[in-house]
């Protein structure tokens, strides 16, 4: 492994250690634990969005798949009385299945069309949840979604995972595994096909890559992850509401995108960074809650205009500014400060 590789690994290990040490550190302050729990769940959702950018598409529909995951999980646990873990997996699979069903027409179109379609999907799923009262509780919301309940943990004994402080471990654990899978995918051979498709989809088809097929795989995996985050959320919040202003409204699709871009969409840790920073800012400005969206919106605009590589990309950005300055000083003009070199 290279030196950079080791540093990265070390950072990750540190992060995981801190994540699991947090409940002990925040023993006195269980509120913050719920914030960090939600942060983990959101990070997964944003990462699923970033995963779709690997095929050069912007999905505004991840929230829709989270809705499906959340309500499917609730229904499986409450109506079919399936235990937590199988239900978590089944509901995510269900969300992936829905994605598979719509993938073909969605992925035949590109760019703006794809974004519009996914946005419509998210809104449609929300409206179905809103109106399908018998299944979802409708506009009043669904209450009493169970958590994992009491479970035996080796060496510890019985733990009640419905307590927020304990559910935190489950949420963070599941999200970490999910992120590891996503990370693996970016290192797997399939990422090369995605990159080829992203760079030039006509050429990719001409060299024999099944463009729609590989895009479908990407889209379905992303939907699985979004569904998983939705299911985790259902058991975290215990009640679900399909209101416009709720977590499942259009504005959440928007927030996800902002989280990703502010963190840096070209980096795997971008979603984590963006979600953390923006959620912490939101917490810090809790007293003036009305102004929160304004602050988030302003940050989004400023970042995309002045730091297109996001917060994680700041070092690279600074290097590129320096280079431009040097070139300007040397009398080379017309260089593009935000110019993106290909990914290293």
């Amino acid at each position: 492994m290279t030196k950079r590789g080791w540093t990265k690994l070390l950072l990750w290990v540190g992060l995981v250690v801190i994540a699991f040490a947090l409940p002990t550190i925040l023993r006195r302050d269980p509120y913050w634990l719920t914030v960090f729990c939600l942060l983990a769940i959101n990070t997964l959702l944003v990462s699923s969005l970033r995963s779709v950018t690997l095929i050069n598409e912007i999905s505004l529909g991840q929230v829709g798949f989270a809705v499906i995951g959340a309500y499917a999980h609730a229904a499986l646990m409450m109506k079919a009385h399936i235990p937590f873990w199988p239900s978590l997996i089944l509901s995510s699979l269900f969300s992936a299945l829905i994605a598979l069903a719509v993938a073909y027409p969605f992925l035949k179109v590109k760019g703006i069309y794809f974004s519009i379609l996914t946005l419509l999907t998210a809104e449609t799923f929300r409206l179905v949840a809103y109106y399908w009262t018998s299944m979802t509780g409708g506009s009043l919301g669904l209450t009493g979604v169970p958590g994992p309940g009491k479970q035996q943990v080796p060496f510890v004994g019985e733990v009640n995972f419905d307590r927020p402080a304990n559910y935190y471990y489950i949420a963070v654990g599941v999200v970490l595994v999910a992120l590891l899978i996503l990370y693996w995918l970016e290192r797997a051979y399939i990422s090369f096909q995605w990159r080829a498709i992203r760079d030039d989809n006509l050429l990719a088809g001409a060299v024999g890559i099944n463009v729609i097929g590989y895009k479908t795989i990407n889209f379905v995996i992303a939907a699985f992850m979004a569904g998983l985050s939705g299911a985790l959320f259902a058991s975290y919040q215990h009640n679900l509401s399909p209101d416009t202003t709720s977590r499942f409204g259009v504005s959440m699709s928007i927030y996800l995108l902002v989280y990703m871009v502010v963190g840096g969409k070209d980096y795997f840790v971008g979603p984590l960074m963006g979600t953390t920073v923006l959620m912490l800012i939101a917490e810090a400005t809790r007293s003036s809650q009305q102004y929160q969206p304004m602050i988030t919106g302003a940050i989004a605009i400023l970042v995309i205009l002045f730091l297109p590589m996001g917060l994680v990309g700041i070092p690279k950005q600074v290097r590129s500014w320096r280079r431009v300055k040097r070139l300007r000083a040397a009398g080379v003009d017309g260089v593009n400060p935000a110019g993106k070199e290909g990914k290293a």
Partner: peptide
Amino acid sequence: RSGREVVLCSIVISTGLTLI
């Protein structure tokens, strides 16, 4: 702006505007 992904930029800027 030159050298930017136009669609992504517009989506992010307009989402920011929406929030504001």
